[in-house]
């Protein structure tokens, strides 16, 4: 199972709903890395994740996990996948002890020792029913369960949304620990781009069902930049060179996708480094081109 380069390979996935289409999405999650999956609400992140997990069926395209087709080797693949959802998928009447008894018979690699170790680390009660857990506790519980069966791939759908920064940091540290093993990979969808900026190796950005960007985070951040200039200077920039521009009262901020060529073309322009959040913002407004 280790002779694969990418933990996930998605090729031309298309899924059509009434009023929404996930359009020809392709990207790879390299083995041993963490990929941030970003996009607005309704962009298609959950749809993509659900197709990877076979919860919903894609209309066309191919998904390979650990080099195997998910349509043919589903059960085999899922022994090595852990999914963390935005909501706790366990019954509120259960407690951690009961959950351990259930999951130890579902996952071959389940380790009760690891599970209770994480519970202790997260200071989660063993006998308290999940219904009485706070949102943070629920998320920690899910992560504890996800990390206790020696999964090679962790898929997270908005797992850190709604958590306070302390808990989020704690969780991010655990993900980094998890990635110490080269066989382990993470696909993490999130709105909180600052989290991804901290830990992600690569980033995939989708909007309205379309793939806008995919690649290594450092490369994306290196090539993109924000031009800060006056309105007069902005008039001189060709519209084809920018993704979109935020027009303010005192000047203009424009996102460029090729910092180097823009700086060569327009000497004297100040191009500041950018963040994933800004990239997301400017790309989302790319159709308007100019916004305030």
């Amino acid at each position: 199972m280790s002779d694969y380069e990418n933990a996930i390979e998605i090729k031309n996935i298309t899924k059509h709903y009434d009023g929404f289409t996930l359009d020809n999405i392709s990207f790879n999650v390299p083995k041993g890395s963490i990929m941030g999956f970003i996009g607005q609400n309704g962009a298609g992140k959950s749809t993509t994740i659900n197709t990877i997990l076979n919860i919903i069926k894609a209309d066309s395209g191919e998904i390979r996990v650990f080099g195997k087709d998910t349509r043919t080797a589903d059960a085999q693949i899922k022994q090595d996948i852990s999914a963390v959802f935005d909501e706790l998928p366990f019954h509120e009447q259960l407690n951690a002890k009961a959950l351990d008894r259930i999951l130890r018979h579902i996952f071959k690699g389940w380790s009760s020792e690891t599970f209770f170790g994480y519970l202790e680390r997260f200071q989660l009660p063993v006998k308290k029913k999940f219904g009485q857990f706070s949102k943070g506790m629920k998320m920690k519980l899910q992560i504890a369960a996800a990390l206790s069966h020696n999964a090679k791939l962790l898929i997270m759908d908005e797992a850190t949304t709604g958590l306070d920064p302390v808990v989020r940091n704690e969780i991010l540290d655990i993900f980094l620990e998890y990635l110490q093993d080269e066989e382990h990979s993470i696909l993490m969808s999130s709105h909180i781009t600052s989290d991804l900026e901290k830990i992600a190796d690569s980033v995939t950005f989708i909007d309205k069902g379309r793939l806008l960007l995919t690649g290594y985070k450092d490369e994306i951040l290196e090539t993109h930049g924000v031009v800060k200039c006056s309105k007069a200077d902005y008039e001189n920039i060709e519209k084809g060179d920018i993704i979109s521009a935020r027009i303010g009262d005192y000047g203009v901020e424009a996102m460029v996708s090729d910092k180097q060529s823009v700086s060569r073309k327009y000497s004297g322009l100040v191009i500041d480094p950018t963040t994933l959040e800004e990239i997301m913002l400017f790309y989302v407004n790319r159709e308007k081109k100019e916004w305030s």
Partner: peptide, 21 residues
């Protein structure tokens, strides 16, 4: 009568991400 509570608690989604057939 746990079927409905499986759906309400999102267990059905989780179940699909496990190797259970």
């Amino acid at each position: 009568d746990n079927i409905n509570s499986d759906i309400v608690s999102h267990w059905s989604n989780f179940q699909r991400s496990t190797p259970m057939t």
